[in-house]
Write a protein that binds this DNA or RNA. Sequence first.
DNA 1: CTGAAAGCGCTTACAG
DNA 2: CTGAAAGCGCTTACAG
Lengths: 334, 334
Amino acid sequence: MTTMVKVAKLAGVSISTVSHVLNGTRYVGDETRERVLKAIEETSYRQDALARAMRRSRTDSIGLIVSDGGEPAFAEMIRGVEETAASQGITLLLANSAEDPEREARAVEALLERRVDGLILARAAGSGPGALSEFANHDTPLVLMDRLSDDPYDQVGVENREPVKELVEHLVSQGHERILLVAGDTRVATLRERHEAFSEAMTAAGITPLDHLMVIASEAGKTSAGIDAALSAAEPPTAVIACSTVLAAAALQRIQQRGLRMREDIAFATFDGFAYADLFEPQLTTVRQPAFRVGATAAELLTKRIADKSGDPTTVRLAPTIEYRASTDAGPSS
Amino acid sequence: MTTMVKVAKLAGVSISTVSHVLNGTRYVGDETRERVLKAIEETSYRQDALARAMRRSRTDSIGLIVSDGGEPAFAEMIRGVEETAASQGITLLLANSAEDPEREARAVEALLERRVDGLILARAAGSGPGALSEFANHDTPLVLMDRLSDDPYDQVGVENREPVKELVEHLVSQGHERILLVAGDTRVATLRERHEAFSEAMTAAGITPLDHLMVIASEAGKTSAGIDAALSAAEPPTAVIACSTVLAAAALQRIQQRGLRMREDIAFATFDGFAYADLFEPQLTTVRQPAFRVGATAAELLTKRIADKSGDPTTVRLAPTIEYRASTDAGPSS
DNA sequence: CTGAAAGCGCTTACAG
DNA sequence: CTGAAAGCGCTTACAG
């Protein structure tokens, strides 16, 4: 491997000069610089980011841990973080926790050992305060993404209550009264907020939210069972709101299995939606979050915090948009 | 930040001993080790992976660059790489090239600067030999994933010809003669192989492959236009084979737009398929690649190569499976 | 059973 | 306009 010493020798200068040419950190005579650049070229020298980082105690890298990089919303957020980081010359180290708090903790550990300048974290569902308290001791900045905390952290997510309220009002105005909420794992802040907002909105509409019409479960199997139970009840729901892509998939699967026809038998709305959702018939009413901007904002909050560690934590909530499609067009059939 | 010096002082030993306790690299007296461990605990010391890596000239990390982490097949491959790496205590640095050769080159550069022990690369569509020749000079091992090269590299991908042949035979045996192949960007090795196999299989079946029934294009717009042209031809296709998820989406969109009914009007098969494809009606015949195993194998090839740089490069081809579903059930309607 | 010291490849005051 | 030297936080022969 070529090091600065070799380059310096070839150019007949000191390693200081090579370093300064490389980083533009002080004036170097034209002719000297030429020689150095030529030597760099000839030796195909590449700076050692490790040695540089160690000396500067700064790696120009940030870590990003997401609970599921395959989900469309997260994939978009990752892109948002990536582009913002890249535009600032920052390398992104990406890790997946696969919704496993233990893997999340290991990823945090691995990234901190690598001395990332800061970390963005979309916490796993069951993640307690463990991974977070890790940060109390060390002064690596942290930004929470998507799944927010009540504690004062720098964090960015979406507004969850408002769209639920709007969806409920829309459905109720069409005459729906028995609306099924597939809430999923309410340990996840996002899902908890949506669930709470649902209860409130229903109550506000003069409808008592019924337990069997709110499916709360941390496992896929239980979610499906809960949906099934609701659909086969004496007074089945005429509309469904699914709180995430995965939950929507579970619900749609149960609906199809039972031979229910969308629109005719049941209205349907979901958060996040599917990749290629346009291909579904009927097209689905979807609460679309500005996922790219969520990621970009997270990266901005983080670089700001890295530059200046003083000042109070900021919470940013971006507004999702609701795309009304055919799946919520008709009123209840009953 | 706590360093080994602080720990050593607190424990009343030398930093050598701290290091050896940490790494288990030589015997340390029980009582001494206890003191060191206690000091580590008390100071919440964390090893500096950078300094360690620099000294050992080995980072215990590998890089993975994919062209699109959001695609279901790639997401699975990433998981395969990730788990295999994690099981060996190797950290994965992940980058997205977004099918952009320039971003790919930058990612390669960034990862090499970070001294990854090796690199796995699923090349971007338009990527020339540029990024690869980078590796000729440096001795960082490289494994090609999914999109293979004719040159002798360590690489792992899937068998592309056999499934195309099988699909064509299946469709022909049902009476289909005008089969549309949506081949996409044939600069991508995977797609080129599928396209070639299609021509061969058609010819073998005694059918002349027609140019307007093989859509080759590097841009989404042109792909859609090509599909449209084929569907509106005097003698339109009675079956479609899409060579990737994105291409399938384009084709399905055009089919829906024209009001064509699947099965009745047109048969459909695709490579890779969609997340939640089960929800499509009719369910789609899909060539499913063992994506997780592709990723895992790539990681294994790489760690093997890191351990032993001698020996000839290996090419591994894994076999996909074809899942026949309703979308190719019926013969042509004409 | 343990310590003192060299050195990994850089950056950056200090000095001229 | 440029160089000599200290030091970032570790690992690892060498020595006892």
